[in-house]
């Protein structure tokens, strides 16, 4: 269970680096249905919202933490903000630092502000992701 007095400020660093590949960029671009030439060809740049891939991986780390008691199927995404320093490129070796910046519990729901710092091989920030996630407690959702 989440507890503001224990978990605000909780910080998780990614364990395995994420390697940005051409095929993953093309897969992401195909899902978006965007034919921008920047995202195509042998050496594509990733669309800005490729940041979602790293954001989702970072959330998974929070969800996998048994201390927090979170379940993906009970999470609704309420707000999102991305701030870019540059776009992802093929060959980037990415790590993340995930911070539970704020937590309020109201009416059987956790309101979590999660910030993900997405860093490259030089520890320079590529993009910062800030999300408001609403997590329903188990007894509020049918099994």
């Amino acid at each position: 269970m989440l507890d503001p007095s224990l978990h605000i400020g909780k910080t998780l660093r990614s364990v395995e680096p994420y390697l940005v590949s051409r095929d993953k960029i093309l897969e992401f671009t195909r899902a978006l249905g965007d034919d921008n030439p920047l995202y195509q060809g042998p050496d594509p740049t990733a669309p800005p919202t490729f940041a979602a891939v790293l954001t989702v991986r970072a959330w998974q780390q929070l969800i996998d933490d048994p201390e927090l008691g979170l379940a993906l199927k009970r999470i609704i995404h309420a707000d999102q903000e991305f701030t870019w320093h540059r776009l992802f490129r093929v060959g980037d070796v990415i790590s993340t630092v995930t911070v539970l910046e704020d937590l309020r519990i109201r009416g059987g729901m956790d309101y979590m502000t999660v910030v993900v710092h997405v860093l490259d091989q030089d520890e320079a920030e590529v993009v910062q992701s800030r999300s408001l996630l609403i997590h329903k407690h188990a007894e509020e959702a049918a099994a």
């Binding site: 921008n36 920047l38 800005p48 309420a78 999102q80 903000e81 991305f82 701030t83 870019w84």
Partner: peptide
């Protein structure tokens, strides 16, 4: 990004509520 002629690197931030 299409309005920017495809130059997505000019996007600095993007913020919204679902």
């Amino acid at each position: 990004t299409d309005w920017l002629g495809g130059d997505a690197s000019r996007v600095v931030s993007y913020k919204l509520r679902f």
